[in-house]
C-alpha cells in the first residue's frame, strides 16, 4: 500500500520531469530534466524492489545512480566540446614525451 502510493508519486514526478525535457527550451533544460529523471529512476527502482519483495533490485539502483552521473557529465562534455576525447589526447601526448 505504502509502496504503491510511493510508486504513483514517483511516476507523477517522472512525468513532470519528462514534460520539462520535451518543453526545453534550451538543451541545458533537457539535460537537467534527464538528470532529475535519472535520480527519480533510482528511487523508483529502490521502491519497486520493496514493492515486489525483491531487494536484489537495489544493486541495479546502485549502478543506475553511478551511470546517471557519468551520463550527465558525458552529455555535458559532448554538448560543450562536441568531442568526448577532449583533453585526453593532449594529456597522452604529454605523457609520451
Amino acid at each position: 500500500m505504502l509502496f504503491a502510493a510511493a510508486t504513483i508519486a514517483l511516476l507523477v514526478a517522472m512525468g513532470l520531469a519528462l514534460a520539462r525535457a520535451f518543453l526545453g527550451p534550451t538543451v541545458y533544460d533537457r539535460i537537467l530534466a534527464v538528470n532529475a529523471f535519472g535520480t527519480k529512476t533510482v528511487l523508483m527502482i529502490a521502491v519497486l524492489g520493496f514493492l515486489s519483495g525483491r531487494p536484489e533490485f537495489l544493486d541495479i539502483a546502485l549502478l543506475y545512480a553511478l551511470i546517471n552521473f557519468i551520463g550527465t557529465i558525458a552529455v555535458l562534455k559532448f554538448v560543450r566540446y562536441a568531442d568526448l576525447g577532449k583533453g585526453t589526447r593532449e594529456h597522452d601526448r604529454e605523457a609520451l614525451r
Binding site: 505504502l2 509502496f3 502510493a5 510511493a6 508519486a9 514517483l10 507523477v12 514526478a13 517522472m14 512525468g15 513532470l16 520531469a17 514534460a19 520539462r20 518543453l23 534550451t26 541545458y28 533544460d29 537537467l32 530534466a33 532529475a36 527519480k40 528511487l43
Partner: peptide
C-alpha cells in the same frame, strides 16, 4: 519518511516545470 520523500520529490519535479528559467 517515505511519504515526505515522495512529497518533496513531486514538489521538486513541479518546480522543474513551473520556475521561469534554467
Amino acid at each position: 519518511l517515505v511519504l515526505g520523500g515522495c512529497f518533496f520529490t513531486v514538489v521538486g519535479a513541479f518546480g522543474l516545470v513551473r520556475l521561469p528559467d534554467v
